[in-house]
């Protein structure tokens, strides 16, 4: 009885310290390192074949890499804001896919065609208990571009990017204003048509 109780206590303590250690490990699993690794992986894929493969060929790979650190559903729903409710479930699915492709296609085209940029990331700054901001500098062709990533500690997902600021310009806010303008005069179906046409144009 005594031995059992002692063993139980030791086991419980061991478990407790193991849990504590795993929590500490999760904390030390710096969101900056995770984000940096995602962006480097993306650049590896974009520059792997000297630009001989198209975006369509690499789409699945690009999306699966970015999914590690970016929550596109959150980004797009935040960008649509109150207009999200004007879309039915099928339109929500289509708009999410089309915008993701359009943005990835246009911006990866620029990254893929130019020389590989050098990156530097600053330490995260807390915005609130569950949100942080990571500044980074992208050096390409001798010019510096400031990119800021905003991340939230999302339940069951961990630290995920929910907005990107280019030279202090919030992409989510920029798209929000465009969607607001669109929905003043046009419909969700018009938006889907517009996105399809734009995507075809970028593909050509």
């Amino acid at each position: 009885m005594t031995t059992n109780l002692l063993r139980l206590s030791i086991t419980t303590l061991a478990f407790a310290f193991a849990s504590f250690a795993s929590v500490s490990a999760a904390d030390s699993d710096n969101p900056k390192d995770a984000l940096e690794s995602t962006i480097h992986e993306l650049l590896d894929v974009l520059h792997a074949d000297n630009g001989s493969l198209s975006f369509t060929d690499k789409r699945e790979q690009i999306v699966s890499i970015l999914d590690e650190s970016f929550s596109f559903d959150v980004i797009i729903q935040r960008a649509l804001g109150r207009n999200w409710a004007k879309l039915d479930s099928d339109q929500k699915r289509q708009v999410t896919l089309l915008i993701t492709d359009l943005v990835l296609k246009t911006y990866t085209r620029e990254l893929q065609n130019g020389p590989r940029p050098t990156l530097s990331f600053s330490e995260p700054e807390a915005l609130s208990k569950s949100k942080i901001e990571i500044d980074s500098k992208v050096k390409v062709n001798g010019s510096d571009v400031n990119l800021t990533y905003r991340l939230a500690n999302i339940k069951d997902r961990g630290w995920q990017v929910y907005d990107v600021l280019v030279e202090n310009v919030s992409m989510v806010s920029n798209y929000r204003k465009q969607f607001d303008e669109h929905f003043q005069k046009k419909t969700a179906q018009d938006l889907i048509e517009l996105l399809r046409n734009k995507l075809n144009k970028v593909h050509s």
């Binding site: 929550s71 559903d73 959150v74 729903q77 935040r78 999200w84 569950s130 949100k131 939230a152 500690n153 999302i154 339940k155 997902r157 929910y162």
Partner: peptide
């Protein structure tokens, strides 16, 4: 943590 739904 924050819920994805709350963040949206």
């Amino acid at each position: 943590f924050i819920d994805a739904d709350d963040l949206m």
